[in-house]
Write a protein that binds this DNA or RNA. Sequence first.
DNA 1: ATGAAAGCGCTAACAT
DNA 2: ATGTTAGCGCTTTCAT
Lengths: 343, 343
Amino acid sequence: MKYEAITIKDIAKALGLSTSTVSRALRGSYEISAETRKLVLEYAEKLNYRPNPIALSLKEKRSRSIGIVVCEIANNFFSQVINGIESVAYKKGYYVIISQSHESFEREVANTQYLASRSVDGLLISLSTETTDLSHLNKLHDRGLPIVFFDRITEEMTTHKVIANNFNGAYQATEHLIKTGFRRIAHLTISPYLSITKERLAGYKAALADHRIPYDETLVKYCKYGGLFEGETEEAIDSLLALKKKPDAIVAASDKLSTGCLAALARRKVRVPEEMGIVGFTNSLLTDIFHPALTSVRQPAFEMGQVAMEMLIQLIESKHPVTKFETRVLNTELSVRASSQKP
Amino acid sequence: MKYEAITIKDIAKALGLSTSTVSRALRGSYEISAETRKLVLEYAEKLNYRPNPIALSLKEKRSRSIGIVVCEIANNFFSQVINGIESVAYKKGYYVIISQSHESFEREVANTQYLASRSVDGLLISLSTETTDLSHLNKLHDRGLPIVFFDRITEEMTTHKVIANNFNGAYQATEHLIKTGFRRIAHLTISPYLSITKERLAGYKAALADHRIPYDETLVKYCKYGGLFEGETEEAIDSLLALKKKPDAIVAASDKLSTGCLAALARRKVRVPEEMGIVGFTNSLLTDIFHPALTSVRQPAFEMGQVAMEMLIQLIESKHPVTKFETRVLNTELSVRASSQKP
DNA sequence: ATGAAAGCGCTAACAT
DNA sequence: ATGTTAGCGCTTTCAT
């Protein structure tokens, strides 16, 4: 019942050739006679021969597969990025292995290690919120494993990176609220160590400054796990609502935080936008059917995946060691909906 | 710069031992002297030796990794299933390779083939809507690859399966609408060939029958790709609204169809639930912030993943060929919200 | 208790 | 144009 996959050896034996001849014929080497080649090819076709990628990986130390590490796939932004990555990978003949860190540093290390030991040809990674130590990635990178960062990047490593224009996204979100008439704007964001947090916070601050609204530290709330865990967002919202000088609007810095914020306010019967304006960072396709429809900064997630994958392939396939690295910044887009309309 | 990973050979050379001794010491073989073992273990530890899983896979034809094939990860239901799978896999020391068919038969075949050739020890699969021919899976199964089906299963293969109680889910959804006072209930569903479609349709019909409401074929609309492509849902909604005798409620059979339905009706200014009641099948965590809040049948997705993985491990690790197979049916849960309230 | 050698499937340097 | 051989990292007979 358990029949084995057919190998080059089987073909060689059946055809009275050596394995190397078969191997060469299969790969279309010019030093094989047309006759033999045809013979081998046809026989292989007939038996539906498939080269064993494990053997290939062992031999060549490459696998034509790449690894992805994200915190969560149950996230509009990341699943769209992954689809972008896959679309390019598929075209170029690379397979994609997806893994999740669940925002845990330990899991991130385990996953990268596993992927590397599986001989992935390269790594696409968006860091977990817990990650501050980069030695696991540095080690692999030093060993020659191509790595491209996307979204949550690090200054500490020199390689290709792709991000959204988080500064601008947050700036526009904040400025939009200001122009609509909101004055006391809070910022609900992720771990302060993440690159995206810093970039978005800077955009938020810049917009306030440009409109002469003083920056008030108490209005910035960090959810270390970006709302991944129940209660994190609720707590942040509660502490905002408990302020003597309550905010009249919130800029929420991620998918989960945006929807979590909406849900938390609904539960507390805080009317949006009458009592609290909201602009979220989200790639949900459902912003229109939220209550209220959610004004949001959309990141070009699919495109980010495509660009990241293209960059990675460039690194993988480059004949010479790449020394010039680039950080691509993709534009975000603000869509105004009901949640930010001053009544 | 590009330093190679350390191998058993390096250790052997450094310690003046043979590779076989090192191998045995590493695996704790009883025929190795305590002294040598200690020596090897300590040296390996010091150099942070990690066995090369590719070499192991080639040798042992197993990899301690399993493959998942789903149509889309950008889907609440499936990403929750995957998290369930991972939670068990992680505990048991299995790695998980996720791949997407994007509802394409061709991609499903390519993915399963790839996973098999990567020596996954088993496969967890939910079929694409296009799949009717199962020979790609049958071939692998005959070869001895353990396979467990979840959610979208097939009658044609004998192995473990896990599904939600789709019949009951649809029955409850439909009955709930009837009891609330809706009379002309449409059913918006996926490809008629999918197991889940049949099961849900049967539940819908049974509820109608039990309440003496005649079954009207024109009220059942199939979206072949389950709303994956823009326009599919819109079209279905339009054709429902164009009926001489319009429905007054809809049971939507999937995540994408439920939200797509809500969005399409909003765009057409059809008020929910006043003009159209809705019950959806969805695992979204956002049902409360939809407008209106969506009454929904929730599937135990995480649990389904756990069960599927446990079943797969049982197949993988069983010493004897497994001959008794089981289909586990997990209960669904109906949460009533605004979208199904008769005004 | 340890080592030598074969083999997993494949490629490539080196014969012929 | 084709065959022989070695080797990728590891385990596992079979010797010793």
